[in-house]
Amino acid sequence: MSWYHIPGNQQDTVVCTCVRLSRNLAAYPFPARLDAVAAKEIIGQVGAVLERSGFIPTDFSEISRKGAESLAEKRFVSLRFARESLPHALFLNDPCNLSVAVCEEDHIRIRCILSGLALADAYEGAAKVEALLDGALELAFDEKMGYLTASPAHIGTAMEASVILSLPLLAESGRAEGLIRHAEQTGLSLRGLSGGGQGHIGGLFCLTNRMTLGVREEEILEAMESAVQLLTTTERGLRSGLRGEEYDRITDRVRRAEGVLRHAHLLSATEAVELLGLMRLGAAMGISRGVRVELLTALLTEAMPATLTVGIEPPPKTRTDEDILRAKLVRERIFGDT
């Protein structure tokens, strides 16, 4: 069981929420300047506190590269961290919604990831873990600059809140660019998941806060919450405003997506994200019946390259083998077909 198996609030438009708190130990250089011995010391100190509270450690030297990348796909660590050579570790709680990455870009990165829209809960979750560590270790904190981080772009609260949104109609409406600018003006950043060119794959967007200094955690969350409301209200307005031919065209696209997901023999990761996005829209609009949205959320992770193939023996040799596996997984999970 992981965070992405649990139904979330407003999941018609919101995929998940993550709050990340970055912390560093006052007595050590930031990870980029650490040697292996010091990195292991930090892992030991942080681990001792977390393991007492029931967190389970993952030693990156003992798992495959694919296993590490899968943890990045589940959003527990950054991809760069998963591929890092310096000793580093990850601690996870049992329901797998709290993670602590040690010796990532900062010494400690606490993440709380929850399904759907849950900014306040995600912050509370991350803050509780922070309180455990703050009592036991001396954190790098300055009265004027707040929590000190390796990148000056994160000092102050050292908090990054992010919400992944599913806004397929907004992406196509031509209004996305204006909303991206609006987010920028309110100190937030809205990025579309793009395939390198134009367009937004699967209608997915990521909203994060940019500024961290001189603004309280609660203010960041408030700004995020209002931006999410603006985006989701706009998307819902576009959905409920569909009439006649427009509605038929969307219905057709959703049904075609279902058809491909049910019958395809090969399915690339990008195509899966695109079609799952359309099915999510179909489920929210009542076009696709009997589909649980949380299943579509889970597949956004489970059908990604590393998570899909980790632990599979023998591992797929080619991209085609991987695409066959993905098509099969999606077919089984959504339609129960074998």
Binding site: R75, S151, R191, G192, S194, L204, T270
Partner: peptide
Amino acid sequence: TVLSGAHSPLFAFTGTGCPIPL
């Protein structure tokens, strides 16, 4: 406006965004 996120699939969302020339 700075728009990043040019990778696929979902990795584009797992990073910390673009580094800022300070």
